Simulated assay, not measured.
Amino acid sequence: MSKPLLAGVPALLLASAALAQPAGDTRPVMVILAHPDDELPMAPALSALARAGADVRLVYATSGDAGPGVSDLEPGEALAAAREDEARCSAKALGLGAPMMLGYDDGKLADEARDTPEDDGLIARLASEIAAAGPETIITWGPDGGYGHADHRLVSAFTSQLVEAMPASERPALLYFGIRADRQAPVAELANWAKTDPALLSVRIGYDETDLAAAAAATQCHATQFDAASRAMLAPVFDQAIWQGAVDFRPAFASRGGSAD
Rank of each mutant, 00 (worst) to 15 (best):
P75W: 13
G146F: 14
L212S: 08
D227Q: 03
A124W: 09
A235L: 10
A7Q: 05
R231C: 14
A131E: 09
G97P: 03
L102Q: 01
A191G: 02
H149I: 07
V237L: 15
R57P: 02
A215W: 07
D65S: 14
A91S: 12
A131F: 13
L122I: 12
A78F: 10
I139H: 04
N192F: 15
L49F: 12
P68G: 06
W243C: 06
A81S: 13
D144W: 13
D119W: 06
Q225S: 07
A91E: 01
L126M: 10
G142V: 12
G95S: 03
A252R: 03
D211G: 08
D37C: 08
L175P: 11
F238P: 01
D115M: 11
V237C: 08
E77W: 11
T224F: 08
V31S: 03
D25N: 13
L73T: 14
S16I: 01
W141G: 02
S160H: 04
R88L: 05
A229N: 01
A113F: 15
F226R: 00
D65G: 15
S90C: 12
A52S: 11
P186Y: 08
G97S: 05
V203T: 14
K92Q: 10
R114S: 05
D38F: 14
L154M: 12
L212K: 04
T224A: 03
A80D: 02
G148L: 04
G24Y: 14
A228Y: 11
L73H: 11
P99M: 07
R171V: 14
S156L: 12
R27Y: 14
A54R: 04
A52Q: 00
Q220G: 15
N192I: 15
Q184F: 15
S255K: 01
A235R: 01
E129R: 04
D239P: 05
F226W: 12
A235Y: 09
G258R: 00
D25Q: 03
K92W: 10
E84L: 10
Y147D: 06
G64P: 06
A131L: 12
L96A: 10
D37E: 06
A82T: 08
T224D: 00
V163D: 00
S255N: 06
A218S: 12
A191H: 01
T62V: 13
Y207N: 00
S63R: 07
P198Y: 05
K3N: 04
A132L: 11
R180M: 05
A157H: 10
W141S: 01
A216M: 01
S90H: 08
V56N: 01
A133P: 02
P186V: 14
D144H: 12
E118T: 14
K108H: 12
K3F: 15
N192C: 06
D65I: 09
A260L: 11
E136Q: 09
Q184C: 09
A17S: 13
V163S: 02
A80C: 07
I205K: 00
A165M: 04
K92I: 07
I242D: 03
A80E: 05
S90G: 15
K92N: 04
I242M: 06
L73G: 06
A110C: 03
P36S: 05
